[in-house]
């Protein structure tokens, strides 16, 4: 977390500790952790990936708002600090545990019942392609209670409806504590759509998805 001290630091409150304890038993039931974010989310994601243990029993899918027609090395940027390699999946690639996937530029990323990816080139949603909502919604359809959705810093309300879908399907919903966000609009919208979502600071999210680490 060094070099980013400008972000307000949040000490784990009693509230979030209780919540964390309440969900600590949920991660073993998760097959898919799907993470969405926009402005301000990249440093958080880099730290989250850095915190992942060398092997983990679920797949991670990242959906980040990004520019569409310029060459991008986002996969390398995200993996730069970490032992984890970030994969931009091809259409119909199977989702495998222990892997980290990144929604490719200029496509929506959907999930099929056989747990493979489908790409989709339909209209941008919330001005974005990839958009977070369709990935969250199809993840909820396919993974149900074995899905965890995490909504990070961002400047619009993409992902809020998807987060609610994940909750409705019995999955786990988490938002980054808006007080820790450079752009809190996205997790705030998430909380409005899914009030039961857990509110966690980045470090707490990291410990949530890497329970084996002390």
């Amino acid at each position: 977390m060094s070099g980013r001290s400008s972000r307000p630091s949040v000490s784990p409150s009693k509230y979030s500790e209780e919540k964390r304890n309440a969900v600590a038993d949920k991660i073993p039931q998760t097959d898919l952790v799907v993470i969405g974010g926009s402005a301000g989310c990249v440093p958080v994601i880099i730290d989250l990936l850095d915190a992942l243990p060398p092997s983990f029993p679920f797949a991670v899918v990242l959906v980040i708002h990004r520019q569409k027609s310029v060459p991008s090395e986002m996969d390398k940027v995200l993996g730069s600090n970490s032992h984890v390699r970030v994969i931009e999946p091809n259409d119909k690639d199977f989702i495998l545990p222990g892997r980290v996937y990144l929604a490719p530029q200029n496509y929506h990323l959907l999930i099929e019942q056989d747990r493979s990816f489908s790409l989709d080139y339909s209209e941008p949603i919330h001005y974005s392609r990839p958009s977070i909502d369709p990935t969250f919604e199809s993840a909820a359809d396919v993974f149900g209670r074995r899905c965890t959705g995490i909504l990070l810093s961002g400047a619009n309300r993409d992902g809020a409806d998807g987060l609610a879908s994940i909750l409705q399907s019995g999955g786990t919903a988490i938002v980054q504590n808006p007080a820790t966000c450079d752009f809190p609009a996205m997790p705030q919208a998430g909380l409005e759509a899914a009030p039961e979502a857990l509110i966690l600071a980045p470090a707490e999210i990291a410990s949530f998805i890497s329970p084996e680490k002390p």
Binding site: L110, I111, E112, Q113, S118, D120, S122, P134, E137, S138, D141, V142
Partner: peptide, 9 residues
């Protein structure tokens, strides 16, 4: 057709 996309449509 891919079901995920068709369901959305």
């Amino acid at each position: 057709y891919s079901r995920a996309s068709l369901t959305r449509r």
